[in-house]
Design a protein around this nucleic acid. Structure first.
Lengths: 339, 339
DNA sequence: TTGAAAGCGCTAACAA
DNA sequence: TTGTTAGCGCTTTCAA
């Protein structure tokens, strides 16, 4: 009905309908500058009548940046990252900024492609998981000048600012706790075939502490792909049915550990008398289990919130000139009933 | 270093560096038209050297549409929607389309604002949850001319195409199953304070079937906000400790129902002898529980996949001229051990 | 095979 | 208080 070609109405169309210049429409729409009451009403009613929807692409092109925050996630199949994303989203709500996201499936190569892709939208900022990125990724980010925040991990050198926790320290804390309870023969069940670098760091810390204490890791199983409670149950069953099974199992996350609990409940295996268990994350659903899992609580929502706040916060120059910075959001060991 | 102002290099900068026209750079970048081997290499190396990242905002403005698929979700706090989003994302991977999402928190008003917001990016398509939308939302979508897909529900009149299942039929199927096992006194535990319209439809179907059979619903509890396993455990405990408790409980989702199982396990309540339970969704983690929950399996990933395929599929005119259409992806009752 | 011109819809800067 | 001009970076169209 309106529009020069046949597409959606533009400010020109509204201007024509309201009998004013296009610039006046722009001013009314943004509520900037001085506009007379009367003109304003004419414009607004014309806009409503024509069903005007602003074209942000034009504004963003003009501004040389889009009101977007790019979010890179390892996967969508893990609640942990939904929670981070949720923190970002909630923080952005009402700021006029939209989150755009992409998923790497834990691949550094995919991250590289994805980051280039996301940067082509000229976002205001970008959030990356972890501190390990390819040189090309770092270069692209630096060249683009976007603001960056890294989340989850703080063991390493951030591009700009990292909001997270020491994965290595979390692994060590878990090991110390289990050692203090007298366990000496440990098993480990992980996932993502070693691609989850945070899990690797945790296990490295765990293993080092175990060895320093003269105890040992007698069984180790890393699943190739994603992990679930069902996997945890199956792998626990397998590990405990082997010869000389461990007397304590460390899992790379709560889902796997909860599967271990389920196995024990179903088979009548006493926890922690026959086998002790520990997880990682402190997910909410653990509270509902009949047995309270010993685990590490992580600030998932907070990592998203802080990263988003950082990106929308201080002025840009500040960020550019300041040296890489680490914000340790910490973790808390939840001393449950499983070890 | 490059760029007319001081920002990122543009095609003009590469053109200057390679000694060709800007148009030639454009052609090389997109691999269209004829370009000589030699020019192509000069351009490509200049682009690499300058760290060129295309500006999609310009392309999208020119094209009058951005390579985006907008996804509206009720919440990020429920795995169900992460799974739908995952289906969308996986389907879009490699097509050059990016998902942009927003969250309504089950509010029709927020949906209205969000849809306008998302449409201002001129996306190629939009995915909405459910069939209930405000008139303004429908109008904005129609006026924009974007392709639409609605997911989750098929009980109603779609804007264009709906991919989902009959929520009402799912509720009725659950009721019939429970009635067939001889239960007569039912309880219901829901969440989102009645804002989750799909849950309301399920319960309506459930209730109608129960009443038709002359049985009754003796207890009903709808939590105001989001639901979790912990809520389910607590509410189950409360419902069972009341006078004349129900002999069977229907939950609006698996998380709540799993909480019910946990309560029974912890308290030594026999399932289904003392109380029968049924959930909804068929989430993967149920397999790991010591007791197999009776529930309804829903095609969550498929809803995302099909919706995305539809939006990137057929040509536009096709979609515009065709009447509203429903694609019933069905559901499956999982006959577990809890009723 | 390459280039020049025009314009997508919007806003900053300046003019009236 | 309102309008005019120029241009953001790209691609379509037409010309060389």
């Amino acid at each position: 009905m309106a529009g020069r070609t046949d597409s959606r109405p533009t400010m020109d169309d509204i201007a024509a309908a309201a009998g004013v210049s296009q610039m006046t429409v722009s001013r009314v729409m943004r509520g900037t500058g001085q506009t007379s009451q009367e003109v304003r009403q004419r414009v607004e009613s014309a806009a409503r009548k024509l069903g005007y929807v602003p074209n942000r692409l034009a504004t963003a092109l003009r501004d040389e940046t889009a009101p977007l925050i790019a979010v890179v996630l390892p996967t969508l199949g893990n609640r942990v990252f939904s929670e981070v994303l949720n923190g970002v989203h909630a923080t952005l709500a009402g700021t006029g900024l939209q989150p755009v996201f992409g998923v790497t499936e834990y691949s550094v190569d995919q991250e590289e492609t994805l980051v280039r892709d996301l940067l082509s939208w000229r976002p205001r900022g970008i959030i990356l998981p972890g501190l390990e990125h390819s040189d090309a990724t770092r270069a692209a980010i630096r060249a683009s000048g976007v603001r960056v925040a890294e989340v989850m991990d703080i063991d390493g050198e951030p591009i700009s600012v990292a909001f997270g926790l020491s994965q290595s320290a979390a692994g060590r804390a878990t090991a110390r706790h289990m050692l203090s309870k007298g366990y000496r023969r440990f098993g480990y069940i992980g996932s993502q075939g070693g691609l989850d670098l945070r899990a690797v760091k945790r296990f490295d810390g765990f293993r080092a502490t175990i060895r320093e204490a003269g105890a040992q890791i007698v069984a180790e199983r890393v699943l190739p792909g994603a992990s679930s409670m069902t996997d945890g149950r199956r792998e626990t069953a397998a590990m405990l049915s082997a010869q000389d099974p461990p007397d304590a199992i460390y899992y790379s996350n709560d889902d796997l550990a909860a599967g271990g609990i389920m196995h024990c409940l179903a088979e009548g295996i006493a926890i922690p008398a026959q086998v002790a268990l520990a997880g990682f994350n402190g997910l909410a659903f653990l509270e509902a289990l009949p047995v309270r899992l010993t685990t590490i609580e992580t600030p998932r929502l907070q990592m998203g919130v802080q990263a988003a706040l950082h990106l929308i916060g201080q002025d840009k120059d500040d960020a550019d000139t300041s040296a890489p910075r680490i914000v340790d959001l910490g973790f808390r060991l939840i001393d449950g009933d499983t070890c």
